[in-house]
Amino acid sequence: MAEPQVDVKWSMVVDIDKCTGCQACVVACQSENNVPISTQELYDQRRQMTWIRVERYWEGDFPDVKARYIPIMCQHCDTAPCEPVCPVFATYHNNEGLNVQVYNRCVGTRYCANNCPYQVRFFNFWEPVWPDSLKNQLNPDVTVRSRGIMEKCSFCVQRLRRSERDAAQNGDDRPADDAFDPSHGAFAPACVRACPTDALVFGDANNPNSRVASLAHSDRRYHLLEHLGTEPNVIYLKKIDPEAGDGNHE
């Protein structure tokens, strides 16, 4: 009767070693998710939105300086600090391991954003404006957020839903795991599809055969700000670099 209760746990692996800091993921995310254009004015106000951002740190002193990149998006924590603090349940954890933001329920207290250690939650200070030329480019599968509410990376849940529908139409219980391998093609979040170096891998961590599950057991794995015990669903893989410092970046 019911929609089959799919026992999945969506998860992403970010291989820092492969990231070149090219920002393709940022652009892909921007256009997939109707994220408002980050204008110079918004940057000056510190109100620009990028659901995924590539942080850049410098290591060493000139001229022996190295740039380190780390892409950061919503970590979809299993014990997310943002969830219990929302007074109206606008953000919560669903049974697929997603940290969900419900736009229509949000009243905009911004408490969740304060309580997010990764600073990946964004507030619509202004009504978003698109130039006329871009209005038809908006993704119809994604809500265009109005002012006064929070938003953040959703792991492209609209693509997840579509893949589930496609699977169901074919009579499958769940989307085939192959489908999440970008090289095979059917489905992955926009950033994963856009990454030219395959630094981002997405899939079902509960499926032992998935790529994500095997990468997640790498001995290079770590979580961002692990000491907070947020148990993120985004797993980072350390850089393989003998010269890499111990994290004392500028």
Binding site: T79, P84, E226, H227, L228, G229
Partner: peptide, 9 residues
């Protein structure tokens, strides 16, 4: 109890 960081737990 509310903070739930690793050290606190």
């Amino acid at each position: 109890w509310y903070g739930r960081s690793v050290a606190e737990v």
